[in-house]
Design a protein around this nucleic acid. Structure first.
Lengths: 154, 154
DNA sequence: ATTTTAGTTCTTTTGGTAAAGAACTAAAAA
DNA sequence: TTTTTAGTTCTTTACCAAAAGAACTAAAAT
C-alpha cells in the first residue's frame, strides 16, 4: 500500500477513529485528518495529499491542521530543498492528554469545594455526599498521577 | 437562605459549575439545572422553581430535566397529596461516570488495536509508539479500576 | 362539568460553528 | 519578471442544535 489510496478496511478505521476523536472535542475535519494520519501506511502526508484523500477544501484542511498543531496532536517535518510540510500524527502526546485530564478534575473539584463551603449546614446528608465526592476526586487524582509516573519510569 | 433566591456567590458558583458541566457534554440549560440543584440551599426544587430561577421556557426546562434524568444526574421525589415532583441532584452517580469513562477508554483502545493490526510493518517506529499507547491504556484502565474499587471497599 | 395544575410535545426561530469558495500572500521556480 | 507552489485569510453558505412559544394532554381540584 505504498500509494496514497486507502483500503476499505482503512477507510472503515478512519471513520471509526474519527468518530472517537470527535467525541474528544475535535471538529469532524480535524478528527478525520488526525485519523487519516494515524491509519495510513505512510510516515507522513502533505497538505494536498490530506486534502485530496479527505476531499476537503483548502481552508478546512488548513484550519484542521492548525488546530491539531496547537493541540500538539500532529507535527510536521520538512525535506531539504522542498517547501512542503509533511504532517504526521504525534503518538507521544497522550501523556499530556492524561495530565490535562487531571487538570480538568482539579478544576472540577475546586468548584465543588467552593460549593460545599457556601452550602447551608442544614442539608447534612447532601453535604456529606459532596464532601465524599471531593475526597474521592482528590484521591483519584493522586493515585492516577502515581500510576502514570510508575508507567513512565518503568 | 430558606427562600428561593440565590446569593451573588451562589450565582457565581452556579455559572462556574454550569460551565464545567457543559464541558462534560451537557447543554447549557441542562448544565445550569444540574448546577442549580447542586448549589441551592434546598433539598429539592420543583419544575416551576427551576424554571423561574433560571428564566427558562417550559420546554427547555422539561427537556433539560429529562436529559438529566436519563443520565441519572438528577432524581425526584414526590410528596403525598401533591402532584408536583421535587427534583434533586444525584451526588452518588459519579461512580457510574467514572465507569463510563473507562468504557470510553476501552472503545478507544479497541480501535487503536485494530489500526495497529492493519498497519504496514514497515513503519516500525510509529507502530511501536501505537503499541506502547495501547499497552498504557490497558494498564491505566486496570489500575484506575483498582483505584475505584479500593475506594469503594475502604 | 369545567378549570387549574403540571407538565409534554410539536413547530418555529435563533445562534453558532464548520466547511466551502474565493481572494490573497510570500517564497521559490521558471 | 511572471508564474507556480503552498498554503492562509476573509466572506459566504449550509447546517444543526438549543431554546422559545404555542398547542396539547392527563390528572386533580373546584
Amino acid at each position: 500500500m505504498e500509494n496514497g489510496k486507502l483500503t476499505e478496511k482503512q477507510k472503515e478505521l478512519l471513520e471509526a477513529y474519527g468518530v472517537i476523536q470527535e467525541q474528544f472535542g475535535l471538529s469532524p475535519a480535524a478528527a478525520r485528518v488526525n485519523a487519516l494520519l494515524t491509519v495510513i501506511d505512510k510516515k507522513e502526508l502533505t497538505f494536498d495529499e490530506i486534502r485530496e484523500i479527505l476531499t476537503l477544501s483548502k481552508s478546512a484542511t488548513s484550519n484542521a491542521i492548525n488546530n491539531l498543531m496547537t493541540l500538539n496532536y500532529i507535527g510536521y517535518r520538512t525535506k531539504l530543498g522542498e517547501r512542503k510540510r509533511y504532517f504526521f500524527s504525534r503518538m507521544d502526546q497522550w501523556k499530556e492528554s492524561f495530565k490535562k485530564n487531571m487538570t480538568g478534575f482539579r478544576e472540577y473539584n475546586k468548584v465543588m469545594k467552593d460549593i460545599l463551603i457556601e452550602r447551608t449546614p442544614e442539608t447534612k446528608e447532601y453535604n456529606t455526599k459532596i464532601k465524599e465526592l471531593t475526597e474521592f476526586i482528590d484521591y483519584y487524582i493522586e493515585e492516577a498521577t502515581k500510576i502514570i509516573d510508575d508507567w513512565e519510569k518503568r
